[in-house]
Amino acid sequence: MFKDAQSDPAQLRQWLAATARKDREAFHSLYKATSPKLFGFALRILKKKELAEETLQDAYIAIWEAAAAYREQLSAPMTWMATIVRNRALDVLRRSHEHAELDGEKFDAAVASALEDPQSNPIDKLLLGAEAKALAYCMSLLEGSHRQVLAMAYYHDLSHTEVAQQLAMPVGTVKTWIRRSLDRLRSCLGKGDGV
Results as ranks from 00 to 15, higher is better:
Leu141Gly: 10
Tyr31Cys: 06
Ala20Gln: 01
Gln57Ala: 07
Cys188Ala: 11
Met81His: 11
Gly144Glu: 10
Arg13Pro: 00
Leu74Gln: 12
Arg86Cys: 01
Ala66Gln: 14
Arg86Gln: 06
Arg44Lys: 13
Tyr31Ala: 03
Ala33His: 03
Ser29Cys: 13
Phe107Glu: 14
Gln73Ala: 15
Lys32Gly: 05
Ser29Leu: 09
Leu167Gly: 13
Val149Trp: 02
Ala168Phe: 05
Ser75Ile: 00
Ser35Glu: 15
Ser181Tyr: 09
Phe107Lys: 00
Arg88Trp: 05
Ala69Thr: 12
Ser29Met: 09
Phe41Met: 00
Met152Ala: 13
Asp58Lys: 00
Asp58His: 01
Val195Asn: 11
Trp15Asn: 13
Glu65Ala: 13
Gln148Met: 11
Ala17Arg: 12
Ser120Glu: 14
Leu127Thr: 05
Trp177Cys: 14
Asn87Ile: 02
Lys37Pro: 02
Ile123Pro: 00
Ala164Lys: 03
Thr19Ile: 01
Gln119Pro: 02
Asp4Pro: 06
Arg44Phe: 01
Gly104Lys: 09
Asn121Ala: 01
Glu98Asn: 03
Lys48Met: 00
Asp91Lys: 06
Glu143Thr: 10
Ala67Gly: 06
Ser140Cys: 06
Arg44Gly: 05
Ala109Arg: 12
Ala153Asn: 08
Met1Asn: 06
Gly129Met: 08
Leu16Gly: 09
Phe41Val: 03
Ala109Glu: 09
Phe27Arg: 10
Gly129Ala: 13
Ala132Pro: 06
Ser140Thr: 10
Glu50Val: 14
Ala18Val: 02
Cys188Glu: 14
Val85Glu: 09
Glu65Ser: 03
Leu150Asp: 01
Phe2Asp: 12
Ile63Thr: 01
Leu74His: 11
Ala100Met: 14
Trp177Ala: 07
Leu102Cys: 02
Pro36Cys: 01
Ser181Val: 02
Gly40Val: 06
Met81Cys: 13
Gly129Glu: 11
Gln166Trp: 07
Lys49Asp: 13
Thr173Asn: 02
Asp58Glu: 14
Glu101Trp: 06
Leu93Gln: 14
Thr83Trp: 00
Lys3Asn: 15
Glu65Val: 05
Leu30Gly: 04
Leu189Ser: 07
Ser120Phe: 10
Ile61Arg: 10
Leu51Arg: 12
Lys125Thr: 11
His156Leu: 09
Pro170Asn: 08
Ser120Trp: 10
Met1Leu: 09
Asp108Pro: 03
Phe107Val: 04
Ala67Ile: 02
Lys133Asn: 15
Arg71Glu: 15
His28Gly: 15
Ser120His: 04
Met78Arg: 05
Arg13Ile: 02
Ser187Lys: 14
Ser159Arg: 08
Leu126Asp: 13
His160Ile: 05
Arg180Cys: 10
Arg179Tyr: 01
Ala112Arg: 15
Ser187Glu: 15
